[in-house]
Nucleic acid binder design. Sequence first.
RNA 1: GUGGCCUUAGCUCAACCGGCAGAGCACUGGAUUGUGGCUCCAGAGGUUACGGGUUCGAGCCCCGUAGGCCACCCCA
Length: 434
Amino acid sequence: MTTYRAARGTRDLLPGETAAWTRLERLVDDLADRYGYRRIVTPMFEQVAVFERGVGEVTDIVEKELFRIAPRTDEGESWALRPEPTAGIVRAYVQHGMQTWPQPVKLAMTGPMFRYDRPQAGRYRQFWQFDVEAIGDPGPAIDAEIIELGHRVYADAGLTGVEVLLNSIGDLACRPPYVAELTDYYRARSGELPVLERDRLERNVLRLLDSKDPAMAAVNAKAPRITDRLCAACAEHFAGVRAHLDAIRVPYRLEPGLVRGLDYYTRTAFEFYVAGREGQQQALGGGGRYDGLVELLGGRPTPGIGFGVGLDRLLLALQEQDAPAAHGAEAGPTAVVVGADPDDTVARLRIATDLRSAGIAARAELGRRKLGKQLESAARDRAHFAVIVGDELGAGDVQLRDLPAGTQKVVALADLAREVSRAHAAHRHGVEKG
RNA sequence: GUGGCCUUAGCUCAACCGGCAGAGCACUGGAUUGUGGCUCCAGAGGUUACGGGUUCGAGCCCCGUAGGCCACCCCA
């Protein structure tokens, strides 16, 4: 049996799966480009303090899911693999003085994130996220742009039934009084709360609002809503976000229970859900505004907003919907060089090398198999052409066989690359037209 | 981190009551000398996840560990 295996919660993406994966990465790269979000790459690990401050010390992500790196020496620093991209990006914004750049600074990143969680389908210890941040714009128009971009990622990937859940969680002026009011409300009804929820009441009241416990439904229905308690500035901002979303026709559902538990998260909060996925992994992505974060990481007070898309879950959802994007067949080579003399690997390799130099996707059959097997393998690779090397080589010719068509003709070696390119292009043109 | 279900060839799965570990797909080769996807034949591939225990005998029963999945917790 296998001796070594990929670590728990991680997996290998094999060639059959990477085709769909590569297309998704290209799709998000192109979208970021089209929307003016420039690519940034930050390290996969940071000082623990970056995440403690940037994500929040009392969150599960930091309290129990942080992938800590054991320090090698007495360097005195304590590192962790990044559990999410925003903290590192904001750290880079501050470190490199991006406040002197034209604002807002719009950044995009795709890469692996790490959380020491108990794995499940769609929940991995190493998972990939596409992430976008706009730092330096208070909104509300940019909020709508960001949400629309996120929405488009799913639409362009071919995923249907994606819902935008939207809420505003206020700011430092209006949220503390609201939290106090909410705490009083639940305390007065603590007898009606399930035991688990009673613990959360003291830890993080806002979390009670999105409890999945059916017993909470009645209590939550009558709970005061943050959107009814927003200060004038926040209410105006929220109305602005909705007006902009309406103007660009992005459908959304107001979800008063959607929360972020930390002080520096402000105002706009949103998540992307896909209908028809029961269970816990239906959150495909989400984001929100963090007007207090840059300052918290040592910069000047600067507003910011962003979102992340879980690429693993997006692909999983596409597979569940049996969407074309999930299948991603790899393209076969344009030409495979085969030979009548199994031992003449020199001729096959040389001709394949020449084709590659001419920009053609070519594979040489370098094994010493008889011609029949070589052709069989080429056909199964869905190659367009087989270049058959045989006795004609003495006269400077090879056979060029169109595998799908089953036709074949003699071509001079000197004309081979030109002829393959021409015929391949003509064929693809015909396929696209037809 | 808590509870539950599961683990047999690379993949999908069989194996009666505890009694000789199998099939399909995939892979490699062959079917009279230089022509393919189909068909036929053959081969290779296993410490039944790992470690213990019970038994004359364990893939099957018991315990532990690891991994996967599900529900929590939380989130992407």
